Amino acid sequence: MTSDMTARMLRLLSLLQTRREWSGADLAERLHVTVRTVRRDIDRLRELGYAVDSARGHAGGYRLTSGSGLPPLLLDDEEAIAIAVALRTAAGGLAGIEESALRALGKLEQVLPQRLRGRVAALQTSLAGIVWEERGPRVDPALLATLAVACRDHEIVGFGYTTRHGTGTPRRAEPCHLVDSGGLWYLLAYDTGKEDWRLFRLDRITDVLPTGRRVPPRPVPGDDPAAFVAARLSAAPTRYRAVATVHAPAEDVRARTRGLATRLEPIDDRTCRVNASDDHLPRIAQTLAGLDSDYTLDADPDVLTHLRTTAHRTLRAIRP
Rank of each mutant, 00 (worst) to 15 (best):
L13V: 08
A255H: 12
Q110N: 04
L112C: 07
A82L: 03
G67M: 13
S277E: 04
P217V: 01
G60N: 04
R319S: 14
H58L: 13
V52L: 14
D76Y: 01
K107P: 07
S54I: 02
E134P: 00
A122T: 09
G61A: 05
Y62K: 09
P175R: 15
T169H: 10
L127C: 15
G106P: 09
R152L: 01
V35T: 10
L116M: 06
F159H: 10
S14A: 12
E79K: 00
R172P: 05
L202Q: 13
R204S: 05
S126Y: 05
T34E: 04
H32D: 13
L116W: 01
L12I: 12
W197R: 03
A122G: 10
Q17K: 12
L143I: 00
A128N: 07
G222R: 06
S293G: 00
C176G: 07
L13P: 00
L87V: 03
V208L: 03
Y190Q: 01
D279G: 15
H154G: 04
A28V: 06
A231G: 14
R20I: 09
P225A: 08
V220H: 06
R117L: 12
E155D: 06
I81D: 06
A101V: 02
L116R: 10
W185H: 13
R218F: 01
L116E: 04
E78M: 11
S234L: 10
G136V: 07
R283E: 03
F200I: 13
K107T: 03
C272L: 06
T37W: 08
R152F: 03
V229D: 00
T309W: 04
A86P: 11
E29Q: 14
G61E: 12
A51L: 05
G290W: 00
D77I: 03
G136W: 00
W185E: 04
R135G: 10
A51T: 09
R20S: 14
R263N: 12
S3F: 09
D203F: 06
S54R: 09
R283G: 02
S23H: 02
Y190P: 04
A248H: 02
G222Y: 09
A90Q: 13
A51I: 09
A145R: 12
T296S: 08
T211K: 06
F159V: 15
G183T: 15
G129C: 15
D26Q: 15
T18M: 12
G96S: 13
T271W: 00
T37N: 01
L70E: 04
S3W: 01
S100F: 00
L288Y: 01
D252Y: 01
T146F: 03
A91D: 08
D196N: 13
R171F: 07
I130V: 11
R308P: 00
T125H: 14
V243S: 07
R119M: 15
L12P: 05
S66W: 01
Q114C: 09
I205H: 11
K194Y: 12
P72V: 01
A244N: 03
D153K: 03
E99S: 08
Q110C: 05
V208I: 10
L315R: 06
I83P: 00
L199P: 08
S68V: 13
A80E: 00
S100T: 07
I205V: 14
A101Y: 11
P113Q: 07
A244D: 06
G182M: 14
E251N: 04
R241L: 10
I156T: 11
T296W: 02
G222H: 08
T238D: 06
A311D: 05
D53I: 03
W132S: 04
A25W: 05
G212T: 15
